[in-house]
């Protein structure tokens, strides 16, 4: 609770201080161990490539990857775009596909969970579509939408859509009857019961779904950008393969990883803000 300003006896305060210091020291040591292990790994990798244990056509040395990364910040060669362009293209694509999936999927799932008739109407179709992996939609998307941005965004949409719907649906379905009864006895209409109770109760699960969807969307990116593209991180990786440049591939892979992690982090910040009522036990 907010106002915990109770005065502690001196002895207790001291022992807390010692305890806190000891914990800090321990976490510093653990951090050091992690850094050392990564350093050793990178060193062995560098060493193995330098002395020729690993062919540099198969795997570039870490230093080469860093050089390529710095170069790609400004140089569009060899595959035709600077890193910033690739990132912008991919982010745009993911945000369109993913954004649409969240905006359509979450309300759809919530309403399916709440309104029985709506559930029966939509569920059968959804159940047929659900188990099909998003990548399997690529050929049809090309026929329907060509090979442009729309087709790629569509595939990302499909990848993100399913978890959004399922989690929202489940969240509403799990609403304990007692909360609904409180609303009902207070005189809430069916819609008010949904809006003030079920929707709120479902929020933590909705966010789990939205997180999973983001992971799906981002990981489908590479596949989606296999459709003819002229920029994008997936495109960059593909070109790296064609040009036999493992350094380009690895820079692309790491960028995808880092951006994915950043997006996940931002989303969990948003989640903590919106679902701040949830107990974190």
């Amino acid at each position: 609770m907010s106002n915990n300003t109770t005065k502690l006896p001196d002895g207790v305060a001291d022992s807390i201080k010692i305890e806190v210091a000891a914990r800090k020291k321990e976490s510093r040591q653990l951090l050091l161990i992690s850094i050392i292990s990564v350093a050793i790994f990178l060193f062995l990798w560098e060493f193995a490539v330098r002395i020729g244990w690993i062919d540099s056509k198969h795997l570039s040395a870490p230093t080469t990857i860093v050089e390529t990364f710095i170069m790609k910040l400004s140089d569009p060669n060899p595959e035709g775009g600077v890193l910033g362009t690739h990132i912008a293209t991919s982010l745009g694509l993911v945000l369109v596909g993913y954004g649409a999936a969240v905006v359509i999927g979450v309300p759809l799932g919530l309403l399916m969970g709440y309104y029985h008739t709506f559930d029966k109407l939509v569920s059968p179709i959804f159940e047929i579509v659900r188990p099909i992996p998003p990548i399997a939609w690529i050929p049809l998307s090309i026929i329907w939408l060509g090979i442009g941005t729309t087709a790629k965004a569509f595939i990302i949409f499909l990848a993100a859509f399913v978890p959004c719907v399922i989690n929202s649906y489940t969240g509403v379905k799990l609403t304990p009857a007692v909360y609904l009864n409180v609303a009902k006895t207070s005189g809430a209409s069916t819609w008010e019961m949904f809006w003030t109770v079920s929707k709120n109760y479902a929020m933590p699960l909705v966010f789990t779904g939205v997180q999973v969807a983001l992971g799906n969307a981002w990981s489908t990116l590479v596949a989606a950008e296999m459709l003819a593209a002229i920029a994008g991180l997936g495109y960059m990786i593909q070109q790296g393969r064609l040009l036999a440049r493992p350094d380009i591939i690895i820079v692309g892979m790491l960028t995808i990883g880092v951006i994915g992690a950043i997006l996940t982090f931002l989303l969990s910040k948003l989640e903590n803000h919106i679902v701040k009522w949830r107990s974190r036990s």
Partner: peptide
Amino acid sequence: DPKKHSISFVFQEPSAFPWLT
């Protein structure tokens, strides 16, 4: 009629909405 009258119910199990203060 719950819509017209106000009938309050305190249920046996805890029923404070967890998302509200």
